[in-house]
């Protein structure tokens, strides 16, 4: 049986050898270079990231060193500049301070404005007899008007002021009128006065 198998295998092996011999006569075909490169590139890309980054490990060390040097430079520079002045507690504190200053300024402005408006109101209304005869009150009004004219833009327009002065004249309050005229001339030196107020 085994002899039969050997006998039957022998021609098969011989035939296979003959075919192999003939097969070797074929030109040895090889893959194109482009395919070779493509396969090798794919193989390289498929490598684990740690292997690909092994050659780039110095980048991490360099970055760490740069951070350390930068931190040291900052510390040394701060030491050379001397002690750092104490910082305000918060920015909110500074805001509060500035807000207070602004509020203070605003309140002062408000006082002046209130005083001038009060004076305006007082001058528009018929003055109470006590106030009309009280030189202190009159001086206060005059001073307020002057201060208003000196510190800021004129509050009372010349036309309204002149009308007021004419009312004073008609009411016979000449002392007040003189003061108003004097103040008007200071405030509006170029504005002409009507002839009835020029005396």
């Amino acid at each position: 049986m085994s002899g039969d198998t050997r006998n039957s295998n022998r021609p098969f092996e011989e035939d296979l050898d003959a075919i192999r011999h003939a097969w070797q006569g074929l030109q040895p075909v090889e893959p194109p270079d482009l395919i070779d490169q493509s396969v090798r590139t794919a193989a390289r890309r498929a490598l684990p990231a740690r292997n690909r980054w092994q050659s780039m490990r110095w980048i991490g060390s360099l970055a760490t060193a740069a951070v350390v040097v930068l931190a040291l430079a900052i510390v040394i520079q701060q030491d050379q500049e001397g002690p750092v002045p104490p910082m305000p507690k918060t920015d909110g504190f500074r805001l509060d301070e500035s807000a207070k200053t602004a509020a203070k300024g605003a309140s002062e402005a408000d006082v002046v404005e209130q005083a001038s408006s009060q004076a305006e109101l007082r001058s528009e209304r018929a003055p109470p007899p006590a106030a009309a005869e009280d030189p202190t009150a009159r001086d206060a009004v005059t001073t307020t008007l002057q201060a208003t004219h000196e510190e800021s833009a004129p509050v009372i327009e010349p036309k309204a002021w002149i009308e007021e002065m004419l009312r004073l004249q008609q009411a016979g309050r000449l002392q007040e009128l003189r003061a108003e005229v004097e103040a008007f001339r200071k405030a509006w030196p170029d504005h002409p006065l009507p002839p009835e107020l020029q005396d």
Binding site: P28, V29, P31, P32, I35, S38, V39, A42, A43, A46
Partner: peptide, 30 residues
């Protein structure tokens, strides 16, 4: 590379197809 390429080329007969299959085979191996 040579034997595997020829194994594929002799089966399909067409070099263009053989190139694709050869490259694909290596990609699968990788």
């Amino acid at each position: 590379r040579g034997p595997l390429y020829r194994y594929i080329l002799r089966q399909v007969g067409d070099p263009v197809t053989a190139n694709d299959l050869y490259q694909g085979s290596w990609e699968k191996i990788i």
